[in-house]
Nucleic acid binder design. Sequence first.
DNA 1: GGACCGCTAAGACGAATAGT
DNA 2: ACTATTCGTCTTAGCGGTCC
Length: 574
Amino acid sequence: MASGWPGGEGWQVSQKRPHPERGDGSVAEGGGVADDLFGLPGDADDETGGGGGEGALGGVGATGRVPTSSGGGGAGSRGGMSLGAYSAGAGAPAGAGTRATPASTTGRAGTVQARRPAQRSASGPLPTTLPQQPQQQQPQQQHLQQPHGHQRHQHQRHQHQRHQHQQQWPQLLPQQLLEPPPPQPPPQPPPPVAAATFHERLDAEGGGGGGAAQQCPPPPAASLVEAEQRLATAVVSCFVAASGALLDIVEGRLFREAGYRSFSNYVRGSLHLGVGLRQARSWVAAARFSRALPAGVPWPSCERQSRPVASLPRGAGVRAWVMALQRARASGAGSATGRLVAECAREVMQAAAGTDARSAESEPEPESGSGGGSGSESEEAGGAQLPLAPFTLSTSNEWYTPEHIMERVRALFAPGAIDLDPCSSAAANARVGALAYVDREADGLGQAVAWGGNVYINPPFGVRAGASMQGLFFERCVREYRAGRVAQAVLLLKAGVGYSWFRDVLQWPVCFVSERLSFVRQLPAAVGGELRWGAGVQNPHGSVVVYMGPSAGRFVRLFSDVGCIPGANAWAHS
DNA sequence: GGACCGCTAAGACGAATAGT
DNA sequence: ACTATTCGTCTTAGCGGTCC
């Protein structure tokens, strides 16, 4: 188990605390270690708040999100909130504080949410434990009706784990998060005795009654110390412990103990978990990212924070995360929102691409072929080298433009030629015939790749740093065209109406291709390696041809028989 | 002080594709 | 067939501003 990871500790604690509230939006603050460890691009002149690295990130921002209480009367919470300490429906007084949400609020969630209430009603109160241990995979009733001696044993174990936890996670205490950078030693958490007293009280009051403890809110905190202790435990234990427990299940293949062959089957078949497959995977990815963080770097405290960086190469993800923390602190926003993290991730990856391309220029010759860029995920987290951002999808995601489209592109550029294809390959360029092309390894989005002349782009699908590759290539093309470096450009994009990046596409002359294009891919060498139409793959997307250049009239003439060109041939009067 | 409104962030999900 | 991964969207909740 990775150092610093509380493992199931927080879980064990949380399961005894049917808190309806949780601290959210906070960042587990690791002090300024991260600031010292990482020199972040673009942040050199940042106002580091005079605090150097020791400052708090602006506080917890404890938004205290309240899990949605099921309108059904407190027996269960909705969706994933029933995980662990999220079993709010049981803890919160009915109708108190939480907005009642009809079980059928979201018909869209039908497949999962429609099944959960039935499961709950059939199996009694919602379990508050994640079956992280084999013996805890039993139904909740058995767990709650364990003999008192067993409970005491568990309680002692909890105490021991809490003690370990406080030693491992001193930086996570909200007291430190909330206070400005103190020169004085951080406030010490309340002694374990206080927490033990609280738990003992819980045990005494609800232990013998099965689920009775979950039906009653915890007794009011007798002191600020006790309240802060509860807050500290809740903040740390909720997301961190839950996601970590899921990761334990994945990496330890613990689901096999319950007879499941895969994690997916396990999640789908374990409705008592209260999480869907999508959520479970997100949390696992988040936990994996967190565990890989260097010591001293605060962990994300919610899935949203880790989502943009969880899929990045390790070093880039860490840099983006730390950058987001710094910016959140500098802006006084307090917590690093998911949006901020996503922005930082994009910046880091763009900077990394540029750095990589420049270094490649200065070096004699990178090893050709096997994608040196994308495979460099083993670099150290704090190292200066960042890997070339890999395309998310594999090389098999190379789909080449149908010839009848290419013919029109060449005619549009005539008497010139296609000067550049910034996302191509040798095989693809055999069809495109661009005078210059940039392959995947060289990365056409990199700053070192100069765009110019007549450009044709058929960007790959997939994402980089949370941003659509289609959108990234389109945005780069717009910049290059407006800067005057690109004379003309034709892009063949997915007709992603509704996508955020697609809104800007509609500002240009476009042709919505009437048919679903059968793209061309290269067959494996075993079957000749030739290019064939379609290869039996149905293109599920519509396509749109975008033109940037002075010859919009010629574009209309050439592409009017291919599809609809709004304003030209697509209106009823035309 | 409460009600109302708009904005923002987060949780959760469906749809889709690629890989195994 | 199953798994892994992505995008974008919907819904909910928190928060701050404004008004009465």
